[in-house]
């Protein structure tokens, strides 16, 4: 059975239609890359799937592991195992990473019928996940994302993903603006989390990330829908030729 099935999804923000009949099926164990020019709807897709209420869904349906995703509050989606790594992680002064993660992990465990971890076990679990993304120990005690560099923020997103152990991870331009070291660390983190029952959707502008996280499928999003799908070779072709040839093909057709 598929993990995520998106059928004919349409969404708008501030009266502007962005997604216009988007379809995608993701099976456990798969990595899908979604590429596309600016304004094609990539981030809207990520926000809609995570439940951001600034976006209005105007049509279509989304099935997540047998449940109606669009019917769920953002926190229910998270507890069911959907994780969005934000393009722009939010700074939260006064809330430490540790307390934030403790609250989040407790909620997710409760949903799965598990007791909260005692302090000692929680800290051990956190240490293990921190190492996965080579996150500096000091960052964990600081306020969430406050004063973090761009690379630290993105690593913190992958760290949170590791902590919450989702079924589906959506990475919204996690690679944008990262230097090669940070990119390698982020990609390694994701690769270590990969398993046969988890899936990832990697939204990106650049082919570079896909050298590190090798996708099973590559989709091109343009004007709110997928206009072409292929394997990782499609990404290389896009890198070489840009998006214009696809736009031209579409206008000719």
């Amino acid at each position: 059975m598929s993990l995520l099935t998106i059928k004919n999804l349409s969404a708008r923000v501030e009266e502007k239609d962005i997604l216009k009949g988007f379809n995608l099926t993701v099976n456990p164990g798969e990595v899908h890359a979604i590429m596309g020019p600016n304004g094609s709807g990539k981030s809207t897709l990520a926000s809609v799937l995570a439940g951001n209420e600034s976006y209005e869904v105007t049509g279509g349906e989304v099935d997540f592991d047998g449940k109606d995703l669009l019917d769920m509050a953002p926190e229910e989606r998270a507890r069911e195992g959907l994780f969005l790594a934000f393009q722009y992680p939010v700074e939260i002064p006064g809330v430490s990473n540790v307390n934030f993660m403790k609250a989040a992990v407790t909620e997710v465990r409760k949903h799965r019928g598990l007791e909260p971890l005692v302090a000692k076990d929680f800290l051990a679990y956190m240490k293990e996940k921190k190492e996965l993304v080579e996150l500096d120990g000091k960052l964990a005690g600081r306020s969430v994302n406050e004063g973090f560099s761009g690379g630290e923020k993105k690593r913190n997103e992958i760290f949170q993903m590791a902590m919450l152990d989702p079924k589906l991870g959506i990475l919204d331009e996690t690679d944008s603006g990262l230097d090669i070291d940070a990119l390698r660390i982020v990609a390694n983190g994701v690769n270590k989390l990969k398993s046969k029952d988890k899936a990832f959707i990697v939204i990106t502008h650049y082919q570079r990330l896909l050298d590190y996280i090798v996708p099973d499928f590559v989709h091109v999003l343009y004007d709110g829908k997928i206009v072409r799908s292929g394997t990782k070779e499609l990404a290389l072709e896009l890198e070489e030729k840009g998006y214009d040839w696809i736009k031209e093909e579409l206008t000719e057709a």
Binding site: G51, A73, E75, V90, I92, F100, A103, A104, E107, L164
Partner: peptide, 22 residues
Amino acid sequence: AVFYLRARGLDEFGATALLLTA
């Protein structure tokens, strides 16, 4: 910030309370 916290599994009140307590 509220959405960010909710996207990590905290309910709306929990997210609001965490931010206001901070």
